[in-house]
Design a protein around this nucleic acid. Sequence first.
DNA 1: TTGCGATGTATCGGGCCGATACATCGGGAC
DNA 2: GTCCCGATGTATCGGCCCGATACATCGCAA
Lengths: 201, 201
Amino acid sequence: MLELAILGLLQEAPMHGYELRKELATKLGTLRAAISYGTLYPTLKRLKLAGWISEAETSSDIIPPMTSKRGRVVYKITAEGKERFADLLTQTGPETYDDAGFGVHFTFFSRTDRATRLRILEGRRRRVEERREGLREVLARAADRLDAYTLELQRHGLDACEREVRWLEELITNERSGRTPAFRNRAEITPEPPRPQSDRP
Amino acid sequence: MLELAILGLLQEAPMHGYELRKELATKLGTLRAAISYGTLYPTLKRLKLAGWISEAETSSDIIPPMTSKRGRVVYKITAEGKERFADLLTQTGPETYDDAGFGVHFTFFSRTDRATRLRILEGRRRRVEERREGLREVLARAADRLDAYTLELQRHGLDACEREVRWLEELITNERSGRTPAFRNRAEITPEPPRPQSDRP
DNA sequence: TTGCGATGTATCGGGCCGATACATCGGGAC
DNA sequence: GTCCCGATGTATCGGCCCGATACATCGCAA
């Protein structure tokens, strides 16, 4: 999943590790506080080895913000990397539907086609519904075996599931009717015009 | 965290791996679907090596449900294990406040004292509030940099944070006033009488 | 009788995390 | 002036946990 995230961010602009981590934190802020360096740097190495990314010239090229040339390593995505990104974004496996996988895919929804978006949204809905049913089962069947705290936790979990399913339903409906997800009218958000789809470059 | 969970369950009754996994799934259903065997069995081995648990006699001893004596390995908690459990339950570190850690601690709240419960609830609240503030920051500052889907994801995440904080506030209030958490009147749940506290046997 | 699903234990490779180490830079304290 | 701290930056290591896989038995149904 981190692979998909890195490829996605590098498609927007070349970056070095530290930057990547900060971008990851704001764009995928819903998922985790920040990615660990102990994951990030080995992954970058792996992606470079696989040929999906490569080091950009460290001269005074793309990134202005920092003044001097310390040991920064700026990465950019390769042509094969773009292909890989498109594949990862479109392919769906079981991991696509758990929290992390779904979050990353959702973040890059504007770079995919409507069919893929619907498939992923519906898969996620199925996943959350299963979890919800499991919790209902427990609350119905095993309620007398469990203490008050455990029950309260299960109820809170059930609540969250129901809420997410409703959210997903809304998104699915909107997706089917061809609308962009800026459907809640909130004052603080100026709705963006729908982006042109780039279907696998 | 799995260590705490296993110790907690074995304190209720001796069990073998397969059972442990099922119990884990129902009691901690909020956290994950089920624990993986690839984690469970090595952990059992580790706990046994550490002396927190030991193998129970495989004769026809404690567990009646299954009829015959296949290669089942039944574990029970040791005296040192009980001590270890109480320590783990009371000690709080940063991991105590992320999803998994908080969930496991919460599940065993009825086996701890009110002061510890309050400390953990407040720590978790602080954690979720931080996350919430982070999301608000992003939505306020970087909204124009992000596309509609990413924004929607962040809003959904923010929503979940706000909801959890409210839930925690409620729990904290109840805890302070000495009530048990069965405070929501829901028809399907018969409120249990508060359990007697066993403070570190 | 054949085979399938539940029960049951166990290992292996890999992803991700937290802790740690090391190094440079800018700015505020003194 | 200089000294130290916090932000920037790259990198490794041990450890937890997961999914895939292997292997074996039992009860039941086609």
